[in-house]
Amino acid sequence: MLSLLLIIIASLFFTGIIIRTKSILSGRKGPGIFQPLKDIWRLFKKGAVYSNTSSFVFQIAPSIYFASILMAILMIPLGGHQGIISFKGDFIFFAYVLALGKFFMIVSALDTGSSFSGMGASREALYSLLAEPAFFILMSSFALLTGYTSFHEIFSTLHFGTYISYAIGALAAFVLVIIALIENSRMPIDDPKTHLELTMVHEVMILDNSGFDLGLILYGTNLKFAMYGGLIANFFLTPSYEWYFSIPIFIGVQLLFAVIVGILESFMARFRMNHNPQYIFMLTSISLLIFLGVLLVLGKIA
């Protein structure tokens, strides 16, 4: 319950912080932290426009997408406090619930029949496809390390004792950050600010959405970001922490995450589109290394 609340709170200011960081770094004043939220609110008050060529899929997809993210958030624990839903193997459910939402977005993009949306859908599908193994290998490594298969149990029994397990933890956090960037269509994979359809990935998929639907999608993205931030924060929380420790740590990690994203987006150009696959696949390679590291820790190999 606590984590759900915290993630929702974090989602309110997350994108704002990124934008603010970017503005400050490029020497501008920039919009207020809540400006993205205000934009979304404005969209919520509007009606949606549907093209004649699109079917009901296009209309329900944003809601399903939003619901899938909410569902996924329910599973995120917070240190010792487990998420609202928690069962054995829930990280698999987590991944597939998110995939379901994404699937509907892709289908709805294809539903519009626009050549741009189709292009974006194919790109997004490819990147998710490549990022998925990394997440699974990562989580299974931790399942192997701890001997449990749910988020809550994994994170509450995860103890970093030796040097090598610290290295594993650091690597895992890194992989999760990158996965979060990919799933949220941020730099360097995608440029959320671009206005050029040809270079968009996620944006071009939702080009035909408007009004309330668009608001849902945008807010869903904010939630997703905060959700991954929450997941990463769990690496730094142990069950022994009291809530008055864990909440500041949680917020601190979220803040740090947002600032890092902002810095990253300020000081580099995005990748060329055909470099994205190998970049994403690198995560799988690193996850494999984590897996090998876990085997090393467990003494399965000398």
Binding site: Y163, I164, Y166, A167, L171, I286, L289, G293, L296
Partner: peptide, 9 residues
Amino acid sequence: NILLIIFTI
């Protein structure tokens, strides 16, 4: 070990 893992990365 950590150094070598980083080397591999």
